[in-house]
């Protein structure tokens, strides 16, 4: 049976279909994980690079570095398109028989993603900014589609920015001759304050529900809930900007499918205990 929260997040997307995958970035935002409705103006171009270091899973030494290289283009003042490559490095050393992963050291290209963001309202001219986000991804033995609502609002002469992203993500991974299917529902929240010209400090929070299967409406089984939070720092000058964000998993994870190892000591197995993300962008 679906929870009310799950249905509410899914319903947010009912009006504009589905989409996308792992996190990507609109235009410059003061957040490392949360998107805002800021997009490039018509004809604007940007190259963006990000690296996310993920660490910590139960019963194993687990380190992952996920990379993304993105090119963004402002088609109109309301529509931004992007294309990017995703790749990652993973090193696993199990030290307990209960570890979920096998010993592995792997550097691989994972997928190519497209991204479209259409802004309906700007927070600079409306009380609330609103944009639709869709991101399909395809890679060797991997398919993903993710949709987000980008919602933000500005206060104190645009010095304080608060933002929220409800997200639904469907993922297919090749397993033998078949496909393993997963759904993720996420709610990202962020607040950032302009400390000085070009410098923002903020906090971000993520609530995530993992489901087995690819439907948020009835054919997917909730597996676990997890939560994380942490600070973010953003600096921009002229054509370039950089954002550093840290997320620590909070010990509030819940197992929803009865499998004992979905969560261990309040932490979800599938989520890293700590993540550090660095984003760097240059406007061309």
């Amino acid at each position: 049976m679906r929870s009310k929260v799950e249905l509410a997040v899914a319903a947010l997307f009912a009006g504009f279909g589905t989409a996308a995958a792992t996190p990507a970035f609109a235009d410059e935002t003061p957040f490392a994980y949360v998107y805002t409705t800021d997009i490039l103006p018509k004809g604007g171009m940007e190259i963006e690079q990000w690296l996310t270091a993920n660490n910590g899973r139960p019963f194993e030494s687990w380190h992952n570095i996920a990379g993304r290289t993105e090119f963004e283009y402002g088609v109109t003042n309301k529509l931004q398109l992007a294309l990017y490559a995703n790749y990652d490095y993973t090193r696993v050393r199990p030290f307990d028989t209960r570890a979920a992963d096998a010993r592995e050291t792997d550097l691989k290209f994972t997928s190519v993603s497209g991204e479209a963001i259409y802004r309906l309202m700007s927070p600079y001219t409306h009380p609330v900014g609103l944009a639709l986000y869709v991101e399909p991804a395809i890679g060797p033995g991997f398919r993903e589609i993710e949709a987000k609502l980008l919602i933000d609002s500005h206060f104190l002469d645009d010095r304080l920015i608060v933002a929220m992203n409800p997200i639904v993500e469907y993922e297919w991974e090749r397993e033998g001759t078949g496909w393993s299917k997963h759904t993720e529902l996420q709610l990202l929240l962020g607040a950032a304050y302009r400390l000085a010209p070009g410098l923002f400090g903020g906090v971000e929070f993520k609530a995530k529900r993992e489901l087995d299967g690819v439907s948020a409406f009835g054919n997917a089984d909730p597996a676990a809930d997890s939560f994380s939070a942490g600070p973010t720092l953003h600096y921009a000058k002229g054509e370039w900007w950089a954002t550093l964000g840290v997320q620590a998993q909070l010990p509030w994870a819940r197992t929803l499918n009865g499998e004992a190892l979905e969560t261990v000591n309040g932490f979800a197995h599938e989520e890293p205990r700590y993540s550090v993300r660095l984003r760097f962008g240059v406007e061309l």
């Binding site: 190259i47 690079q49 290289t69 054509e239 760097f280 962008g281 240059v282 406007e283 061309l284």
Partner: peptide, 8 residues
């Protein structure tokens, strides 16, 4: 690519 200098 991103270290290529861009006009100020």
């Amino acid at each position: 690519a991103i270290t290529i200098s861009t006009p100020l």
